[in-house]
Amino acid sequence: MTKIIDLFAGAGGLSLGAIRAGFNVIGAVELDEHALSTHSRNFPLTCHIKKNISELTGTEILEELKISKNDLRGIIGGPPCQGFSTMGKRNLEDPRNNLFNDFFRIIKELEPDFFVAENVTGILNEKYSEIRDAAFSHISEKYHLLPPLKIKASDFGAPTIRTRIFFIGFHQKKIKTPLQEQDFYKQTAKSVTVEEALKGLPQEIKPIWLKESDSWQPIDKEKFGEDEFFKKVVGQIPSGVGDQASVKKYVEQNLVSGCHGTRHSPEVIKRYKELEFGEQDKISKSVKLKPFGYCPTLRAGTGSDKGSYQAVRPIHYLEPRVITPREAARLQGFPDWFVFHETKWHSFRQIGNSVSPIVAEKILQVIFENYYSKL
């Protein structure tokens, strides 16, 4: 079995991409209880470890999962990026920066065949060279590390310009012929616009839909497209993945969660109506989506330790309101049957922190097909 572990698993964007690519995500490590709860609902067969990775050893991970090093094929993960983000303060002393180092420490301890680490483009800034060098020193002797891959999600079939850096490495003794960066860039796919991506979702969202029960609303599958994006939106549900009650609602009743409303004042509604596509509201800083363009990078906002500030959300291109969590999930490349936290705030935070599963699948599919498809 092609067993892998997802470190800093979040809601599960990387996990879903990995499983769709053919891997078996046997373990997920995540400290945030809300993210871990969401991951547990969507990946019930995965063993979940709620611990701080900085306080966790490779041996302890193996003990939790009841496996040996020989059972492990790969490790994936997206170490917290707030310390490196161009949207943040880029604080060299941000303790979250150390978690990037911990990812590679775990790689050194467990020696998987390969690893895939995702982060923001800001991590390549010269000011973080010492942090990168320290992290890579853990794996320099035994791994072939590819040059950083800069991936824009819209180039790989997701309707967002979200651009991230992927660090990919292969164990020199376990994988004799490592892949090269060009092998991954070949996975580009047909682009999907905002208008195409949101087809079939309810457009008129009532501001009183604030409870989780209210957020379950019918969709119109007849409006769905027939391209690869909608195949992933509608189905491709891997065995043992998905919250079964939610999947049943989706398949049998055409209901999706996350259609939460937002209360806007008449003044705000008026301002939003008057905006042109792509124009930013001067007060809220929200940008009106372009129907024939892509969604800008969705932000996560801050955690409770940083004031619990909600990230600015885009405005729907036809309706004078910010988008719903379900619309955000579509724009990030998540399928309709995938469920997030019952509250709007945590849902947006989980989506904003996630790796697009479409991008994750494209990248991990290359690795699976080259080394494990015949196992």
Rank of each mutant, 00 (worst) to 15 (best):
H39R: 04
S213I: 13
R90I: 15
F8A: 11
Q182M: 07
V29D: 00
P291A: 01
G88K: 13
Y143P: 09
N98E: 13
T177R: 10
M1L: 07
L146A: 12
E118F: 10
H264G: 08
S191A: 01
H264P: 01
R162H: 08
R313W: 12
T160E: 02
S308W: 03
D133Y: 14
D102Q: 07
F224V: 02
N125L: 11
G122M: 03
E33I: 14
A189F: 07
Q350D: 04
H138S: 07
L92S: 04
Y294P: 01
S215L: 15
E196I: 08
K152I: 05
Q182Y: 10
K374R: 13
E252D: 05
K186F: 09
G122A: 02
P112N: 05
S215A: 15
D32M: 12
I4R: 06
N98C: 11
F136Y: 09
L318D: 06
G13H: 14
A329T: 11
H34W: 10
I5Q: 00
S286G: 09
L289F: 06
S246C: 13
S37F: 14
M1R: 03
L7C: 14
V120W: 05
A311G: 05
T324D: 07
K142T: 12
K282H: 01
A328F: 15
Y371G: 00
A9I: 05
T188P: 04
E252C: 00
A28D: 04
A18P: 05
A328R: 14
C259W: 00
L65I: 03
P202I: 06
L31S: 08
G157S: 05
L99D: 04
V29Y: 02
G17H: 05
E111M: 15
I107C: 13
N52E: 12
I161P: 01
R313S: 06
R96A: 14
K221A: 04
K362F: 09
L36W: 03
G333Y: 01
I75A: 12
L14T: 01
S213P: 00
A158H: 01
I106S: 05
C81H: 09
F229L: 04
Q350K: 15
Y309M: 06
F84M: 14
Q244A: 08
I208H: 11
L375Y: 01
S15F: 08
E369G: 08
S373W: 09
A197L: 06
A158R: 06
S213E: 14
H346K: 15
E33W: 14
D155L: 07
E63H: 01
G58H: 11
P95L: 15
G157L: 02
L36H: 09
G58W: 07
G88W: 09
N52T: 14
Y185R: 12
P202E: 08
K199W: 02
D102Y: 11
T2Y: 01
I175L: 11
V355D: 00
I237E: 07
F104E: 09
D336C: 04
Y272E: 04
I237T: 02
G27T: 08
R96G: 11
